[in-house]
Computed example of a mutant assay.
Amino acid sequence: MAEPQTEAPPVRNAELKAALLLVLMVVLIAGTAIYLLYARGAFEATQRLVLTADDSDGVGVGMDVTFAGFPVGRVQRIELGPDGKARVLVDVTKKDAHWLRTSSVFTLERGIVGGAKLRAFSGLPADPPLPDGATRELLVGDVGAEIPRLLSAARDLLQNLNDLTAAESALQASLKNVQGMTERLNGPGGAMGFLAGDEKKAQQLLQNANSLIVKADSLIANADKQVFGKKGVMTDTQAAVVQLNGLLADARVSLKKMDAVLAEAQAVGANARIATQDLGALRADVDTNLRKIEQLINEINRKWPFKRDTEIKVP
């Protein structure tokens, strides 16, 4: 016979434990949500920045606004303004707001591969900080939009190249003219024939040039004869140089005589200087005797009994 099955004993306080488990799960979920919000800066102090553009293609809510590669703000909302332009509302954290200045530039870059990027650039850090609620224009740079223009420019360039290399183009005509000039330069007349334009004229020019060369040779020979001949200018110049040397020799003799006269004059001057020194000594002796005589006369006048007193006494 089969043994009768025994029932498991009931769990004590099962409802309380289930309630505690549910509360713990709710607390964990709420803590995780709060942590995620905190990690994403939901509780940080922010200021509002409004960026306006013609269209908001590529911009999404939650997109970061970067400065030097670091996120300083986040797109919170995108709306259409009354002027028909897109308004991108960005929340910038207070701790990073000092990087944005009144002269800052904001750009939206749309690449061929990857999503769009919002970037901020501050060229003058000394400018005042960007105020709360400021509105700035968003400069859009779309690489894909430049492709049609580049293709059009490349097509125009290829067309210009085709026009230049065509059979009836100006470049081909210039090359033909250069080829013709080269053939004429290599012809019998050479450069002279090219300049004259005709072979007969080139021969005449050569003959005239030869006659001019002959005349120039004759002129040079006559000039050589007149300058270096027996009765030429050089002969007369040599004679003049000889005469000049004679005159210089006479001048040297005269200068020697003058030196002798000057030496005698110096000797006479020395004798006169010695005599002047003797006269000075004699003058000193005479002055001494005169002073002695003056002293003797003063002494006689002092001792003379009938000497009148010329002094006037004031009462």
Rank of each mutant, 00 (worst) to 15 (best):
186 N>K: 08
182 T>P: 06
216 A>D: 15
296 L>M: 13
3 E>K: 06
230 K>R: 13
301 N>Q: 11
303 K>C: 11
59 V>R: 02
27 V>R: 06
94 K>P: 01
137 E>F: 04
141 G>R: 14
269 G>A: 05
85 K>G: 03
226 Q>C: 08
170 A>W: 10
15 E>D: 07
224 D>S: 05
74 R>L: 03
65 V>Y: 02
144 G>C: 12
31 G>T: 10
6 T>G: 05
244 L>V: 08
39 A>V: 02
95 K>V: 00
153 A>P: 08
82 P>C: 03
187 G>P: 01
307 K>E: 07
41 G>N: 00
163 D>K: 03
126 A>P: 03
167 A>N: 12
288 T>R: 08
169 S>L: 05
254 S>Q: 11
303 K>W: 12
258 M>Q: 06
109 E>N: 12
10 P>I: 02
270 A>V: 03
213 I>P: 10
198 D>I: 06
4 P>L: 13
284 A>W: 00
66 T>P: 01
247 L>S: 15
196 A>L: 04
191 A>N: 09
146 E>V: 07
242 V>G: 12
2 A>I: 06
9 P>T: 07
35 Y>N: 04
22 L>F: 09
54 D>P: 10
277 Q>C: 09
305 P>N: 04
21 L>T: 07
263 A>L: 09
58 G>D: 02
246 G>A: 15
138 L>I: 00
118 L>T: 01
8 A>Q: 12
295 Q>F: 08
141 G>S: 13
298 N>D: 13
283 R>S: 15
137 E>D: 14
200 K>E: 04
67 F>H: 13
250 D>Q: 04
97 A>E: 00
64 D>W: 15
289 N>W: 09
200 K>T: 07
227 V>S: 15
250 D>L: 04
314 V>D: 05
243 Q>Y: 08
221 A>P: 02
105 V>W: 13
208 N>H: 08
193 G>N: 03
301 N>P: 06
68 A>V: 01
162 N>E: 15
